[in-house]
Design a protein around this nucleic acid. Sequence first.
DNA 1: TCGCGGATAGACT
DNA 2: GTCTATCCGCGAG
Length: 210
Amino acid sequence: MNYSEFFTNRPTEEIAKDLLGRTLSFNNGQEILAGTIVETEAYLGPQDRAAHSYNGRRSQANEGLYCPGGHLYIYSQRQYFFFDVATQEKDNPQGVLVRAIEPTAGLETMIKNRNGKDGRLVTNGPGKMMQAFGIHSRKWDLAALKDSPFTIDLANKRQIEEILPLPRVGINQSDPKWANKKLRYVVAGNPFVSDIKKKDIKLNHGFDKN
DNA sequence: TCGCGGATAGACT
DNA sequence: GTCTATCCGCGAG
């Protein structure tokens, strides 16, 4: 299985779910920073009101979505950055946003990059995750995943107890049909899921025993 | 532990 | 000038 196979030939929703439990890592040149993906969102292209490619919108800013599956779409908003992977074939502008990870390597560096923020505050949101990786530019926008310092482990995956589908976060509510569509997928009970309530956190973080 | 509002920067009209 | 696929600090309970 290579990246272009993984990120094409099936619905983007399915790809988003399949990413949960897999390891995302970033090589910053000094060490490997990594974590288990626990939250993703699917964006379904021109007909999806919440997608950056809604209605065929295309510019230098969102060109990444139009790349073949397995290429990166790094987007900046306010002072933060987002990590997206394009899905489907070239010119079919769908993609998956990785929103949160549970750190597994390089935690000390990630805490430092986050100005000392600790625990689940390190990576429980898309902007926070990229800050923890120490990314402050769109340098890897449009790059193929395989030619970038980012890696997603397609060979291994932690077993998840339950995948919870939820509405996406922070999108325009003017079209409730798309705003309420459950295209956000989370590992139920994992503490690094954004905005999870403390009482909903499970002791096993939502994973079956490995 | 919660809900609210301000900060802040790039893309687009 | 307007609008975000956000984050953080603050004050109330």
